[in-house]
Computed example of a mutant assay.
Amino acid sequence: MGTIDFDGLAAALAVHGLIPRGGIDFAKGETAPPGPSGASARAVLLVGHAGSSIWPHFQAWRATQPAGLADPLDAWSRQVIGAVAVRFGARAVSPSDQPWLPFQAWAMRAEGLRPSPLGLLMHPVWGLWHAFRGALLFDNALERPRNPDSLHHPCDACIGKPCLKACPVAAHAGGGFDYPACLGHVRSPSGSACASGGCLDRRACPVGTEYRYEPAQQAFHMAAFASPSIASAPTSGG
């Protein structure tokens, strides 16, 4: 098993607006998904993005695909990350794989992130404007310095919690997420601002505003959320 070419891997992902995120080596005896060999993986490296870095690449790809393609962002992510996995001797997995893989737990462990009051993982620089699009499983350890055990968590110093007050139906104000209320609002005429511009609670967060998704990207995610075919799944960020 050779050493992972992290520079080459990062360059291959950057072509698509993606970046290698945190990674962890699984402890001996720890339950882990199969790696590329079929045996339990030794390590996982998360793949994602910050801000709208993927958007032009995804849009260019989408223009070449059949109209009405189901879950296009998931399809694009699988295709792109899958090709990188083959090139670098890894196995690609997705947040939408079933049974669900613990992407959020991996991210918290690998990057020291913690959830915001909205449930999305808060990044001290990117705020809520980042996501995980997949992960690479390896048969060998990462053999690189570990990410810090914890990062500055901006929510601890946020007194006003504006992210809990902007939603017209108070979907996050009750100590959890009122999914039916949110979905009903977004699908209604009164929810047009959310449907076209993104979640108002998310947009109210003052951290990482320069990484806020562009309007077309936010509208895309909200349309996917409000789709009649939506199915519940663990979030890796939108």
Rank of each mutant, 00 (worst) to 15 (best):
I4L: 14
A10Q: 13
A11S: 14
A12Q: 03
A12L: 06
A14F: 02
V15T: 13
V15R: 15
G17H: 04
I19H: 07
I19T: 14
P20C: 11
G23R: 02
K28G: 10
E30A: 15
T31M: 12
A32Y: 07
P33K: 07
P34C: 09
R42Y: 01
V44W: 05
G48E: 03
G48P: 00
H49N: 15
S52A: 14
P56S: 05
H57F: 09
Q59K: 12
A60S: 14
W61P: 02
W61G: 03
T64H: 09
G68L: 04
A70H: 11
D71V: 08
P72A: 07
D74F: 04
R78I: 14
A83V: 04
A85W: 04
V86R: 14
G89A: 06
A92L: 01
A92F: 09
V93N: 00
S94C: 12
P95H: 00
W100G: 05
G112E: 00
G112T: 07
G112W: 01
P115V: 03
P117N: 07
L118C: 01
L120K: 00
M122D: 00
V125W: 00
G127E: 01
R133D: 03
A135G: 15
D139G: 12
P145N: 13
R146V: 14
H153K: 06
C158F: 11
I159M: 13
C163S: 11
K165Q: 15
A166Q: 06
G176E: 05
Y179E: 14
A181S: 15
C182V: 08
L183E: 10
G184P: 01
H185R: 10
H185A: 08
R187V: 07
S190Q: 14
A193W: 06
A195K: 07
L200S: 12
R202C: 06
R203T: 08
C205Q: 01
G208T: 11
T209N: 12
E210H: 11
E210P: 02
E210Y: 06
Q218W: 01
Q218D: 13
A226G: 14
S227I: 04
S229E: 13
S229N: 11
S232Y: 10
A233P: 03
T235K: 12
G238V: 03
G238M: 02
G238R: 04
